[in-house]
Amino acid sequence: MDWGRLLYAVAWIGLPVGMGVQLLYNPPQDPRLYLAYPFFGLLFAWGLLQGPKWAPRILTHALGAYLLFEAWRAGDDYFVVAFWSPTLYLLAAFAYPLPLALAAGAFWGGLLVLLPLLRGQGGFPFGHYAAAQPILLALTLLLARFQEYYGQVRFWREQALTCPLTGLPNRRALEMALEREAARVERGERPFSLVLLDLDDFKKVNDERGHPEGDWLLKEVARYLKDHVRQGDLVGRWGGEEFAILLPATDSLRAERQAERLREGLKALGVTASFGVAGYRGDLQDLFRRADEALYRAKAQGKDRVVRSTSEGSG
């Protein structure tokens, strides 16, 4: 079930349903007042058709006017609009920046509070009704701002941990993942392996074909690696033309075999790379060093090959 679509439908179906419920339980005494309902219905429909930018702004004022109408029509039962006022404040919160949202919410909320007083209906439950409006407005605005701030924090966190060119986790993100994996090993889970790979003669690509071609190649390699590792493996950009692959619960021998399959796949695409493989043995700095040394030997031995750290066991 698509919960997002279901909730969206419930949210917008709620407008005509709410109007229908009000008509059912509190029908107008004056038949002419029935004309207001198709007017508000058309106004809501027109607002919804204006798109995500303008719809909340139009609906804020359309709903404010409708609630004011219902509060006036309900007489001593004016407080029933309190059930729907949070919807008004929520629309205002997402329609405008904070100062304007506060002003729009306070405008309609203030009218909803003043109307019973103007009609001489200030007895029970007016106090509860009046106190609820500013509290509901404040809580709704806070909720909307928290959601907005959370989105900003998430954006900057993702920006800080993601390579903007390839979309892969960057070196910092990989280091954090390796630290988590090391902690899991300390709790008794199987050791993991690290694969470093460096594209061969990448500088020549930039020099001869230009940096746009080099960027395109990096993105293609990133896409290939991401599509051809196991679920649970993590591919990231280590820096420049160098990538890293974290292989959880994988010894160095199996990691070497996986690296060999990736090397052959890249070569079939017309790209060669050198790979260095090392297994975790209790020290992350040692793991980085051994994987880097293995990569260096792969380069020194002629490139386009996989080398496993010489200090690894037989697996």
Rank of each mutant, 00 (worst) to 15 (best):
L199A: 05
R281N: 06
E312M: 10
A144I: 00
G14C: 03
F243E: 00
E213H: 15
T272N: 10
G14A: 06
I58M: 12
L15Y: 08
L111S: 06
W12A: 05
V271P: 14
P86Y: 07
F124T: 08
P212Q: 08
R223G: 12
A101H: 01
V21F: 15
L118A: 08
W12Y: 10
N26G: 10
L15H: 07
F44M: 04
L88W: 07
D286A: 15
Q22D: 12
L63E: 00
G4F: 12
Y96H: 13
L142H: 14
F192A: 01
L23Y: 10
G236I: 00
K204Q: 03
P169S: 04
Q231D: 13
D227W: 12
L35D: 12
L102G: 14
S309H: 05
L295I: 02
D198P: 14
L67C: 13
L199W: 00
D283M: 10
D286K: 15
E242N: 11
A106Y: 06
L98N: 11
Y34W: 09
V21G: 14
W108A: 03
Y8V: 06
R230T: 00
R171D: 01
A249S: 12
F275C: 11
G210L: 08
A130L: 09
L174I: 02
G123D: 04
R154Q: 09
S252C: 08
L196A: 09
E213D: 14
I58R: 13
Q29M: 13
G127L: 12
H211D: 02
D304K: 12
F155Y: 15
E264K: 15
P116F: 04
R237C: 05
D198W: 04
K299W: 07
L161V: 01
D2C: 13
G151A: 11
Y149P: 10
H228K: 10
L194A: 03
P16C: 03
P31V: 01
F146L: 11
Y34L: 02
P97A: 09
R261C: 07
R297E: 04
A291C: 11
A273Q: 01
L48W: 08
G282P: 13
P164W: 06
L6S: 15
W156Y: 13
G313K: 07
A144C: 07
G51E: 03
L269D: 13
L118R: 05
C163D: 11
R119Q: 08
V10D: 09
V205E: 03
D30I: 07
L111I: 01
L42V: 10
P52K: 14
R209E: 06
G51W: 10
K303L: 01
L262Q: 02
A95M: 04
L266T: 01
Y66Q: 09
D283W: 07
W108E: 00
R32G: 12
L102W: 11
R297S: 13
W3F: 14
L91S: 01
L143A: 08
A36V: 02
G47R: 09
L115C: 14
A300C: 09
L143E: 02
V81K: 07
P31C: 02
R154W: 13
R119L: 08
L111R: 05
P38M: 00
Y37K: 04
R257T: 02
R308T: 03
S252G: 09
P86N: 04
K53L: 11
G18Q: 00
W72C: 13
P116Q: 02
W108K: 02
G265S: 06
T87I: 11
E179V: 10
S309D: 04
G210T: 06
